[in-house]
């Protein structure tokens, strides 16, 4: 045998290659018990050597596990994580209390965000709500293509578009029912009653035609004595009013119907802007 002429290291590598046990127990990317160093060295020494790189019939795609938590838990988590999109999610749920064509809902979802950019378009928001269980997709039955004959040749002609609608689920409806924006607004006003004049001034200003920009609101209130100590700025107040749905952003800050109710309540209280 010519074994004495063979590099002892090559023998070790050869043994690894032919050892069934090593192939079975592979745990590294090169399989067969080979380390990367072994493989690199083998390639250097033997041009014909092709390292074992795994079985191409395997599928290493990470498996996605189904979320089996109850819908109300998933929905609560969605609203908790998507706070900046809360209004849009609520509006979609409110829109779909009766079944609505999916295309219309997607369009409405896009229109809701026309004045402020989001990576989530209307369709993405709907998908999130469907996955959370707050919205359901109602699809018509699958259709088969039509067989048509032209010049004696049979063709398959796709059927027209499928009907898909969205409808708010009982879980989604519960979210709508639990939302009490008026109570949220009044709770926010009562939390820091010393700032009621500032809130009123901002609501009144934004109720004017064309609304107000952030700069204009800043010019309106930033220098007020009430806001000097502790130092507060206009943004603190219009963000609170926005969270309570008393203000809406549509290229300017504009008072909503709820905000008008807030104005009425504050004026009834005798608050001076």
């Amino acid at each position: 045998m010519t074994i004495s002429t063979i590099d002892p290291n090559a023998i070790d590598i050869a043994n690894d290659l032919i050892s069934d046990n090593d192939v079975e127990e592979t745990s590294n990317e090169f399989g067969g018990g080979l380390t990367k160093e072994d493989s690199d060295r083998a390639i250097e020494e033997n041009e014909d050597f092709i390292p074992y790189i795994g079985d191409a019939s395997e599928d290493h795609t990470p498996q996605v596990t189904e979320d089996t938590r109850p819908a109300h838990v998933r929905t609560a988590e969605l609203f908790d994580r998507m706070k900046p999109r809360r209004r849009e999610l609520m509006k979609i749920l409110a829109l779909c209390t009766e079944p609505v064509d999916a295309a219309d809902v997607h369009k409405a979802g896009n229109a809701m965000q026309a004045a402020h950019r989001s990576v989530y378009d209307g369709e993405a928001l709907c998908n999130l709500l469907v996955r959370a269980g707050a919205l359901q997709k109602i699809e018509s039955e699958d259709r088969a293509p039509e067989v048509v004959v032209e010049d004696g040749i049979e063709y398959l002609k796709p059927a027209g578009k499928k009907s898909v609608q969205y409808c708010t689920t009982p879980v989604g409806q519960a979210v709508l029912d639990d939302d009490k924006p008026k109570e949220r607004l009044f709770a926010a006003l009562e939390k820091e009653p010393e700032y009621k004049p500032i809130f009123l001034r901002i609501l009144l200003a934004c109720a004017e035609d064309g609304g107000k920009t952030a700069k204009q609101l800043g010019d309106l209130v930033d220098k007020d004595e009430l806001l000097q100590s502790p130092r507060r700025w206009a943004a603190y107040f219009f963000n609170i009013l926005h969270e309570c749905d008393a203000l809406t952003w549509n290229t300017t800050w504009t008072t909503t119907e709820l905000g008008m109710q807030g104005i009425e309540a504050l004026e009834l209280e005798g608050v001076m802007a």
Binding site: A102, N127, P158, V164
Partner: peptide, 18 residues
């Protein structure tokens, strides 16, 4: 391929592109 494709295209809706 034609059968599968025609079948898929018979059930497209507004969300098909995504």
């Amino acid at each position: 391929g034609n059968r599968l494709l025609a079948g898929y295209l018979s059930n497209i809706w507004d969300g098909t592109l995504q």
